[in-house]
C-alpha cells in the first residue's frame, strides 16, 4: 500500500433492488476485510449534502475515494465491471440545483453525490467508481448468478484500488460532470 494515503471506500445504492444493490449488499464483506488504519469503509447513502458536510469537517481529508456502485448502462453484460475515474467538471447550474433538490429530498444517487461534491470542491484528485452492470431493476435481496460469480473479483478490485490506486494494466474510463447528464 502507498504510505500515508487516507482512503474512503463508500458503497452507494438502494437496498433490496437485486443486482442494483451491489454496494449496500457487499458492504459487510468489505468491512470484514482487514484494512490498514487509514482506510475507512462506510455506507454513503445518507444524503450527498450530509456526506459533503462530513467530508468538509474532516481535519485530515481523504486522499482517495473509491465508490462501489451498480448503474445500469447500455451495451454492458450483467456482472461486467467497469472502472471509472472522476475527472471533475460540472453540468450547468440548473442541473446542479436539480441534483441538490434530489439529494435534499432523499434520492440515493452516486451521480448526484459526485456533482454536488464537485460543486462544493470536496473531492481529492483520486476518485474512482467501481461500477458493476446490474441489468434491469429487479426487487429482492439476492444477486443473480452472473453477479454472484463476480463478487470475488469486485472485492479484489476494490481492495487493489483502495490500497494501490490504478495501474497501467487497468482499463480506466473517464467520468465527467459536464457530460454526465447529456
Amino acid at each position: 500500500m502507498e504510505l500515508n494515503k487516507r482512503v474512503l471506500i463508500g458503497t452507494v445504492g438502494y437496498q433490496l433492488l437485486g443486482n442494483h444493490s451491489v454496494g449496500p449488499n457487499l458492504l459487510p464483506k468489505l468491512q470484514a476485510i482487514k484494512w490498514p488504519d487509514d482506510v475507512v469503509v462506510d455506507e454513503m447513502n445518507w444524503g450527498p449534502i450530509a456526506i459533503i458536510q462530513y467530508l468538509e469537517s474532516l481535519e485530515v481529508p481523504f486522499d482517495r475515494v473509491v465508490f462501489l456502485v451498480a448503474i445500469e448502462r447500455a451495451h454492458r453484460k450483467i456482472g461486467e465491471i467497469s472502472l471509472y475515474k472522476w475527472m471533475g467538471g460540472l453540468p450547468d447550474d440548473k442541473q446542479i440545483q436539480a441534483c441538490v433538490g434530489d439529494a435534499a429530498t432523499g434520492v440515493i444517487s452516486v451521480e448526484n453525490l459526485l456533482v454536488i461534491g464537485e460543486h462544493f470542491k470536496v473531492w481529492p484528485k483520486e476518485v474512482y467508481l467501481i461500477d458493476v452492470e446490474p441489468g434491469m431493476e429487479i426487487a429482492g435481496e439476492q444477486f443473480t448468478k452472473k453477479v454472484v460469480a463476480q463478487v470475488p473479483k469486485i472485492l479484489e478490485l476494490t481492495r487493489q484500488i483502495a490500497l494501490n490506486g490504478i495501474d497501467e494494466s487497468m482499463k480506466i474510463l473517464e467520468l465527467r460532470g459536464d457530460t454526465l447528464f447529456n
Partner: peptide
C-alpha cells in the same frame, strides 16, 4: 439564488445542525 446565495448555503449548514 441557488447554489451560491448566502441564505441558500446557510440553510444547508442549518440542516446539518438539526441533523
Amino acid at each position: 439564488n441557488p447554489l451560491k446565495g448566502k441564505l441558500y448555503l446557510e440553510a444547508l449548514s442549518m440542516t446539518r445542525v438539526a441533523r
